[in-house]
């Protein structure tokens, strides 16, 4: 799963292409407009590299941090079938992180440096994972609707311009589509189950609706910066377009299950657009900057895992450690 990379609309934009070789820049842009992919050793503008590293890295971090709220439910999943499926799903998410860190490494930043920036709080991950999964139903809603949002985002990004990222996303999207089925099956089971189960899943939807609406990020301000990133196929769709697409695909499915979306203003207008209560963007910014209910805990868990595993990584680096031929 994944949350949309947050692009600060106030970032200075006039210097994006300063100092770049105009001929090379033109050739680069015409390759992208012809639908070609940019590969690791190709020439690319500094800002393109910087934005991609930031975006792929955030995506990778979101996968491993996202494994935490769902991972806590592996040990509590009800029954063999759910336990096995959730283990496989969360394992996929960790696998996605591995793929994505590798894709980002092709742009020159090591996995260690990225993880270090994660645990020191320098780089971000998707905001949704700063909320707690209180019940089993929360884990089910995450698996269905957060993964659904992620797919919309990733299918768009898979058509981007950077080859290694697109290829990683193609594979990730296939796996995510199974997660979506898994999540939907869980939610259907609860929504059509006993009274307690139906209440659990409605309460979870109520809790997760605001983070879901935040998921795609605030409306993009049209700035030169956004325009260039879209021209370079780094950013593939506006946040509002993706949010509309999500509502279009999933609100009817939620209603079909007899669940209520906790937003009385939610409706489709005459122009076929969804209207909704504007999410609380101050809250979004507060959470992104560390003030959410789980930010400190998530980073503490990750930091602790890094510290506890350090001796293993150091032992692997030991110069005199023998090279081992697999014993097969």
């Amino acid at each position: 799963m994944y949350g949309n990379a947050y692009i600060d609309p106030n970032e200075k934009s006039n210097s994006i292409t300063d100092g770049e070789d105009i001929q090379k820049l033109n050739a680069f842009e015409s390759r992208i407009s012809n639908g070609e992919k940019i590969e690791p050793k190709d020439w690319m503008p500094k800002e393109y590299r910087k934005q991609l590293v930031r975006m792929i890295e955030q995506h990778a971090h979101s996968e491993i941090i996202g494994a935490l709220p769902e991972g806590t439910w592996i040990t509590r999943a009800p029954g063999f079938r759910r336990k096995l499926a959730l283990m496989a799903k969360v394992q996929d998410e960790v696998g996605h992180a591995q793929l994505l860190y590798s894709a980002a490494e092709t742009l020159g930043k090591s996995r260690e440096a990225m993880i270090n920036d994660l645990i020191t709080g320098k780089s971000k991950y998707s905001n949704v994972f700063n909320y707690p999964a209180y019940t089993w139903a929360d884990a089910c809603i995450i698996a269905w609707l957060i993964d659904a949002g992620a797919i919309i985002n990733q299918v768009a990004n898979a058509k981007g311009s950077y080859g290694p990222y697109c290829r990683a996303l193609d594979r990730i999207c296939v796996e995510e589509s199974f997660h979506l089925k898994y999540g939907h099956d869980n939610v259907v089971t609860l929504a059509t189950g006993s009274k307690i189960q139906r209440e659990m899943v409605q309460a979870a939807l109520n809790r997760w609706w605001p983070p879901i609406m935040h998921f795609f990020g605030p409306s993009d301000k049209i700035s030169l910066h956004t325009e260039i990133l879209m021209k370079w196929k780094v950013k593939m769709a506006t946040n509002d377009d993706m949010r509309q697409q999500f509502l279009n695909m999933y609100v009817p499915k939620i209603w079909d299950l007899g669940l209520t979306v906790p937003d009385s203003k939610l409706m489709k207008n005459n122009e076929n657009k969804w209207e909704y209560t504007e999410p609380d963007w101050d809250e979004f910014k507060r959470v992104i900057n560390g003030g959410g209910p789980c930010n400190a805990e998530r980073l503490a868990v990750r930091r602790n895992a890094e510290e506890r595993g350090r001796w293993v990584r150091q032992a692997l680096l030991a110069k005199d450690s023998k090279y081992l031929i697999p014993l097969a």
Partner: peptide, 16 residues
């Protein structure tokens, strides 16, 4: 219980 907490990502995946 190692999911998400292994010393390297590859080991999270292996234990899972």
């Amino acid at each position: 219980e190692w999911t998400g907490l292994g010393p390297i990502l590859e080991e999270d995946i292996a234990f899972s």
